[in-house]
Amino acid sequence: MRTASALAVGFLLSATIAAGMMGTAQAAEAAEAITVTPSSGPAGTPVVISGSGWEAGLPLHVVWNCGWSTTDRRAVADVTTSPDGDWSVPAVVPGDCVTQETQVFAEAYGGPHGSPEGVFTLSPQSPESPATTPLPCESEPRIYWSQTAGPQGTHFTLDGSGWAGGGTVTIALPYGSAGLFGASTLNPAVDSLGNWRVEMYDQHSPPGDYEISFEEELCGLQVGGTFRVTVTEEQLRELLSGIWDVVSVGNTACDVTDCNTRWSSSGASKAITYLERARTIYSLANATALAVRVGKDLDELNAALEAADEDKHDPKVVAAARKTLADTKDLHRSLLDTIPGLGLLWPVPE
């Protein structure tokens, strides 16, 4: 029989273990941390925002929190944590952004416990420290993108730093570009600290990579960047459907015409794998029209076979099969035109 003292000891041990487990859980939840280096200075100071204690491989959205009572969250960058749960991004402390009194908070969202805060304390701009504001033509311009890829209609933010204070930046696409982008302004003014901000959005550009240039005439500063417009789910479904239609309809016609080579299902599978990885196509307009024509061809071929009691040598059946075959090859070529490099994996049969 257990004595009262033994029971008391057992209770104390259980309580101690439970408290230790709670402490461990609380420590795990509190392990995530953010630091800003340096931790103080005037607005416009270049800093590095670092995090530790996150799960490995976790995608995070890093922002400046510009007010508890507002929704002003200014994007810094999207990052993925290292195998050790660490991450870091360069940033510039924004102007007109104070979370609490003289402090600006850096945050990272995407983890399971919300976000801790990395604190940067603002100090007054000293007129005796001109080194914090570089001379205009000694600038080193940089642009921080909130994201560099997304489907049609994506909105993203551009934050410039290190530009010539008092100048104006011109944002443009190369002449003849098929890209269609809107912006809060295409000529942002650079503040005295060399910073500027623009909100941009894609206006349903054809999927692909688009070069965007940023120039400031005051000192001849120039920076370039690329935004990738990716395939929408609807476009992807249309293209995958078109690939399988080519295989099934083409081989149905080959059953009548005795093609030298037929469409390979394994080739189509390679094409689909390639497309799902690249997710970048140009235009499906021509291919979509040809797909409609091929569908009608198949209906006419099946009707001719039925009328001829499945006689594949009937002249009307042969004529319908040849037309279906020719249109299917046109559709195949049109699909290849939409996807760079696809012809090597999925050639048109001779």
Rank of each mutant, 00 (worst) to 15 (best):
Y144P: 06
P134Q: 01
S123I: 03
P134W: 09
W163E: 00
P151T: 09
T170W: 02
P136S: 02
S123V: 08
A164N: 01
I143A: 03
P127E: 10
S146M: 12
S126I: 02
C137M: 02
G160W: 03
G167S: 11
L158M: 11
I171V: 15
S161L: 07
E138V: 04
Q125L: 15
L135G: 14
A131P: 04
G167A: 08
P124V: 02
L173M: 10
Y175P: 03
G150N: 12
S161D: 14
W163N: 00
W163T: 01
L180P: 00
W145D: 13
E128V: 08
L173D: 03
A131Y: 13
T133E: 08
T157Q: 13
E140V: 09
P127S: 11
P134D: 04
I143R: 09
F156L: 04
R142T: 15
H155R: 15
G166D: 06
E140D: 12
S123R: 13
A178N: 11
S126N: 15
S129N: 12
G160C: 03
F181G: 00
G166T: 05
F181R: 01
A172N: 11
P136H: 05
T168K: 05
Q147K: 13
L173R: 09
C137F: 10
R142M: 15
G165R: 01
Y144I: 06
A164P: 01
G165S: 06
E128R: 07
W145C: 12
G153A: 05
P151W: 03
T168M: 05
E138R: 10
Q152H: 03
